[in-house]
Design a protein around this nucleic acid. Structure first.
Length: 887
RNA sequence: GGGCGUUUAGCUCAGUGGUAGAGCAUCUCCUUUACACGGAGAGGGUCGGGGGUUCGAAACCCUCAACGCCCACCA
């Protein structure tokens, strides 16, 4: 028996265990068409946040839907080593435990600690995904640093190197002084902060003067300390103020170095003084100036922690100062020399590390770069020609814009946790890139080699996820079958980080293996969902303290309610403002269905596993068959359109507004005492079938509840809904729907008539039931006057004595009636309704009289207007008649 | 400086050329034998402003405004 209380916690975990135990997430369907989704691998040591809950709910919905529809649906799952994030956590743990730090313990010992932490916390997020109900292929769980992925990473690195698409280069990188590593452009976020704009006088050397007579050039900077590393002053070649001094020098204050005045387009005559200081080693623009004017050279004045280091002309007193302290010191010294023209307070843009939160320093180092511009070519055309499509489409523009302006991708990181770069160096500086040290040694000959200390950017391996997880570089059956993935579901915030890189690597490495260009892309659809925000629309963050833990929500409302909420609120990429009351509402929905099933069971209605609806003669049964069918069609459309909100809406309305509110109410008399046995049997069969269909349709969104009820109502206990194949053979039955539409409108009429007759607060409601029980008849007798009154208002025949039978409807229905007390109010209401009907009727008549409308509008629209006009006319007449009967 | 998005009921949002919708909230009534996590009803909107296209615009075009996001080297 279905329990009186709906308690999701009582069955969710047991159901999940059964699914997994019986292999429901990967039923053997060798002949079926595959359907593949590759999970965005979460941080292996992380825990599930609400964004994961959304992302994975949507994926699970798609996977389960296609699995129910017979596809060989497979959800590839695994976790990411998350280089910098994980290393950070472990370093923090060591510090808290007052153990030796990373550098003190050394690389091997530190990596052991990280692996230990991975083992310890690695199961958390996958357990949490199970709580959510994610039907992943757990038997083949992967990790970005498992043997297979390591092999793929090595192969890709070496291949790109051999192809000249990956190279080592000395150039400015975004340097994180806190973690002492390079990071990519994408890991830098620009923030506006209050800063200063310092105008400094650089004295001209050798007695030179400007045409204006000045003996100095003014340059402005937000970072005065970098002047220690200046190697030139640039002016625009066409700037008349400075033509006479181009090629001459200034004396760089504090350092006493003579630096040249050069002409370069970079200097904008419109800005400030028109002259700009050039610090090649500490500014991206200035580096570009240096590349055009190599003679000026460059001077590095900072160490890896962004402290002033020994450098040409830098006074010893500066060495070891932080950037901030050095800035202060420079300004103080220059002021003493009266070389500060003025200092403006100004809002300036500063680069920050997205993980470390410290100011990023442009820093001159040797790093490994991928020629992303080359790889981007095919990645661009694949989206242009639709081999991969973004949903919603608007993200394609973002993708194009970034890809078209893509910069070399810095892939080396000065970290320890990650894939170590497979490059070895000979003492003479020669580089050998190979998959193994032995191969490198073979190339190098008889010299000692040292391996590159650095590791790869985490996204380097994530980029290989769609094929690395399927066994590549081996030509496995899985790879042949499940690449490309059908859909990638992800947040728009990682389009650049991840989606773009997967596109580039997928196309490049699967290109040679697939003859059809359509099969080279890593996935055919990229579905980008929005961010989950708090109820006020603010971004959730730990620092704001406004995060919600999906596990708490699951404990409180059940996984299904959370899933349904996220599904219903996902409207194609728009951000979601999560409100707990909404979850509560969908928990109530689950309860509603639970109770409906309980009612069904107590009335002898058993489940069904047949896709075919039973033969039905009763209008109400034929109607619900039509409703179920039309809902099924709407769901197919919702899936085809990636309209998750529509999916939830259709099933919600079918269950609540159709099945519960109408159907179950309407069939009560058909099942009660004294009911026709044949009708009752038919009704039980149809109700059981409809309920089964509902559970199947609901399953992708609410897998736990649907599975539980399916078993509770089941004819066979050995079947599992999660691996069930729905056979789609529902017949079209438009006639049945039309038939019952008329019935519904009639009942609505009766109901609205009831309000028109104004039930007073004190009135007892009664039911008029054909073949009612003696007790009911007794109550009806007491309300005979009301029945009579109703008879004067309704167009149908009302039999006095308690048998209220509405026109041609043979099944008995329940009609609430009430005492009529206020005749004047009733008349006024009828009058109001009649006026409204007439107004609408006349408006429609006006439109129908408009040739522009009847000739140009769509035929359906005209037809609908005609029908509505007829309906309003009839309504108006009916109300008028009712009014006149009231006298 | 570019680009994108949003603006519809108190709140959260659907609705892309044909009589303005849903959920929640509010108010009224209901111990009715699946469900008060329920039922029956009600109130509430000049669809951000202005202009245009059209027989007809929340929807299409132009423009303004507000809010939000992304990208970008103004030293």
């Amino acid at each position: 028996m279905i329990d009186k209380n709906f308690d999701p916690a009582s069955f969710e975990q047991a159901i999940y265990a059964r699914w997994e135990r019986e292999g429901a997430f990967r039923p053997a369907r060798p002949d079926a068409k595959p359907f593949t989704i590759v999970i965005p691998p979460p941080n292996v040591t992380g825990s599930l946040h609400i964004g994961h809950a959304l992302d994975n709910t949507l994926q699970d919905l798609l996977i389960r839907w296609h699995r129910l529809n017979g596809r060989d649906a497979r959800w590839i799952v695994g976790t990411d080593h998350a280089g910098i994030a994980t290393q950070m956590v472990v370093e923090r743990q060591l510090a808290q435990a007052q153990q030796p730090g990373r550098t003190a313990m050394g690389r091997e010992a530190f990596l052991e600690k990280v692996w230990a932490w991975k083992e310890e916390s690695g199961g958390t997020i996958t357990r949490q995904l199970r709580r959510l109900g994610a039907s992943c292929d757990w038997e083949n769980e992967r990790f970005t640093m498992d043997d297979g992925m390591n092999e793929a990473v090595l192969k890709v690195f070496v291949t790109l190197y051999k192809q000249g698409l990956l190279y080592r280069d000395k150039r400015l990188v975004n340097w994180d002084p806190k973690f002492r590593t390079a990071i990519s452009d994408l890991e830098v976020e620009t923030r506006e902060v209050a800063g200063t704009f310092t105008h400094i006088r650089y004295p001209l050397a050798d007695g030179a003067v400007l045409d204006s007579g000045a003996d100095h050039i003014v340059v402005a900077t937000t970072r005065p300390e970098t002047m220690l590393g200046d190697t030139a002053v640039a002016v625009h070649p066409g700037d008349a103020r400075y033509t006479s001094v181009i090629g001459k020098h200034v004396l760089l204050p504090i350092t006493g170095r003579r630096i040249p005045i050069i002409a370069d387009e970079h200097a904008d005559p419109e800005l400030g003084s028109g002259a700009v200081k050039i610090t090649p080693a500490h500014d991206f623009n200035d580096w570009a100036v240096y590349e055009r004017n190599k003679a000026i050279g460059w001077i590095n004045i900072l160490d890896a922690e962004a402290r002033i280091c020994a450098a040409d002309g830098v006074p010893e007193a500066y060495e070891g100062l932080t950037r901030e302290d050095a800035r202060q010191q420079v300004v103080t010294d220059l002021e003493a020399m009266e070389l500060i023209e003025r200092i403006e307070q100004k809002t300036i843009q500063m680069p920050y590390g997205d993980r470390s939160g410290v100011v990023i320093e442009p820093y001159l180092t040797d790093q490994w770069y991928v020629n992303a511009a080359e790889l981007a070519k095919d990645a661009l055309s694949a989206v242009h020609d639709g081999r991969t499509q973004f949903v919603p489409k608007t993200w394609e523009k973002t993708y194009f814009n970034w890809m078209e302006n893509i910069q070399p991708w810095c892939v080396s990181r000065q970290l320890w946790w990650g894939h170590r770069i497979p490059a070895w160096y000979a003492p003479d500086g020669r580089v050998f890139v190979a998959e193994t040290e032995a191969q490198a040694q073979a190339q190098a000959g008889d010299v000692g080699l040292t391996r590159d200390e650095d590791v790869l950017d985490t996204w380097f391996s994530s980029a290989l996820w769609p094929f690395g997880t399927l066994g590549w570089p081996d030509a496995t059956p899985d790879l042949a079958r499940h690449y490309p993935g059908d859909v990638l579901v992800t947040g728009f915030d990682i389009i650049f980080f991840w989606v773009a890189r997967m596109m580039m690597q997928g196309l490049h490495f699967m290109g040679p293996e697939r003859s059809d260009p359509k099969d080279r892309v890593p996935f055919r659809i990229v579905y980008c969902h929005g961010l989950v925000r708090d109820a006020k629309g603010q971004k959730m963050s730990k620092s704001k303290g406004n995060t919600v833990d999906p596990l708490d929500l699951i404990d409180k409302y059940g996984a299904d309610a959370l899933r349904f909420t996220l599904t219903a609120m996902e409207t194609q990429g728009r951000d979601i403002k999560l409100n707990e009351s909404r979850i509560e509402g969908y928990r109530n929905f689950a309860t509603k269905l639970w109770n409906a099933a309980r009612f069904a069971q107590s009335n002898g209605i058993a489940g069904s596993t047949s896709p075919l609806p039973p033969a039905a003669s009763q209008p109400v049964n034929r109607w619900i068959i039509g409703e179920v069918r039309s809902a099924a069609r709407a769901l197919e459309q919702a899936i085809a359109d990636f309209r998750f909100d529509a999916y939830a809406d259709v099933i919600y309305k079918l269950v609540w507004s159709r099945f519960c509110d109408w159907y179950l109410e309407l069939i009560k008399p058909l099942l009660g005492e004294g009911a026709d046995a044949e009708v009752a049997a038919e009704t039980r069969a149809v109700a059981g079938w409809a309920l089964d269909q509902i559970l199947v349709m609901l399953h992708p969104v609410m897998p736990f509840l649907s599975e539980e009820l399916w078993h509770q109502l089941a004819v066979r206990d050995d079947l599992i809904l999660a691996e069930w194949v729905k056979t789609d053979q529902l017949p079209e039955d438009a006639a049945a729907s039309a038939d019952i539409d008329w019935l519904i409108s009639l009942i609505s009429e009766v109901r609205s008539a009831r309000t028109e007759v104004n039930v007073p607060p004190s009135a007892k409601l009664a039911y008029a039931v054909d073949g009612a029980s003696p007790a009911t008849l007794a109550r009806l007798t007491a309300n005979a006057a009301a029945i009579e009154r109703l008879a004067r208002i309704l167009p149908g025949d009302v039999a006095p004595g308690g048998r209220l039978q509405v026109v041609h409807f043979e099944a008995t229905i329940l009609i609430p009636i009430g005492d009529v007390v206020d005749l004047a109010a009733e008349k006024s209401r009828l009058d109001k309704a009649m006026t409204a009907a007439i107004k609408e009727r006349d408006a429609l008549a006006g439109r129908l009289g408009n040739p522009g409308f009847t000739e140009k509008a769509k035929p359906e629209a005209v037809e609908k207007a005609r029908e509505d006009h007829a309906a309003r006319s009839a309504e108006a007449e009916r109300l008028e008649a009712a009014l006149s009967r009231l006298g």
